[in-house]
Nucleic acid binder design. Structure first.
Length: 237
DNA sequence: GCGACAG
DNA sequence: ATCTTGTCGC
């Protein structure tokens, strides 16, 4: 798919903050126009994981049929993170390589499920929002742990939710995707609203805590990273 | 100032 | 994120 990626990515914290400030106003919270037919899962794996800019990274995107959750297409990309891990500036570490994986897709997914936050971010511009603005497509964030906000514990049954508020507004929703398991944090990225985002996540996670999109992308990027290690001559069992 | 902090 | 075996439970 076509993507308008930045000519150059920021390498300093100040430059990254400036990019977020510039793009944040473009985020739109609106209902999905129609039922999504395809869902894309994105994830990145790290080698070393010291959180430094020169960590080796592998990104993966997996497109699934929204109804059957069966894989339709997938792509990967590897490289250097290019930016250190700084909470709130997470996107500058994963987006560059993620976009290179997305460019290889021959189909354009209806909704992108990101591994991380969207609006539930210090400056209301997490990874999911950033990806949405750059692609112009609906995106949402589903995080395993919250980054900020206050909420009450949702009921134990699958489907139970509780709004997450921060700074006086609702920025996300904790969603119990499976009965008795720790809820995930869902927030909008772009061109979707919280109700639709919650619905998409619940339908994508019929069996496990994390959506099938995330699970498959996680497996794929880990394999891709291992593939780099093998080609580099790193011994393994 | 100190600690926390998506992955 | 990643380093890592076994173990408790459905």
């Amino acid at each position: 798919m076509e993507i308008r990626a930045p000519q150059a990515w920021p390498t300093t914290e100040a430059a990254a903050l400036a990019v977020q400030a510039e793009l944040r106003p473009q985020v739109r919270a609106v209902p999905l126009g129609s039922r999504p037919r395809t869902l894309a899962g994105l994830d990145v794996a790290y080698a070393g994981a010291h959180g430094s800019a020169d960590d080796e990274v592998a990104a993966a995107v997996v497109v699934l049929d929204a109804e059957t959750l069966e894989p339709i297409e997938q792509a990967t990309a590897v490289g250097k993170a290019g930016f250190p891990y700084i909470p709130g500036l997470f996107a500058f570490r994963e987006l560059p390589v993620l976009l290179r994986a997305l460019e290889q897709l021959t189909v354009t997914p209806d909704v992108f499920l990101c591994d991380g936050q969207g609006l539930a971010h210090p400056r209301r511009f997490g990874l999911a929002c950033h990806l949405g603005v750059l692609t112009g497509r609906p995106t949402l964030g589903v995080a395993k742990t919250p980054l900020l906000g206050e909420w009450s514990e949702p009921d134990a049954e699958r489907g139970s939710t509780a709004d997450v508020t921060d700074g006086g507004g609702v920025v996300a929703r904790v969603v119990r995707t499976q009965t008795g398991v720790k809820p995930v944090t869902v927030s909008i990225g772009h061109l979707i609203d919280l109700d639709d985002a919650t619905d998409v996540v619940l339908r994508a996670a019929p069996r496990y805590r994390l959506p099938e999109t995330t699970r498959l992308a996680d497996r794929l990027c880990r394999d891709a990273l291992q593939g780099v290690a093998d080609a580099t001559g790193v011994k393994s069992a």
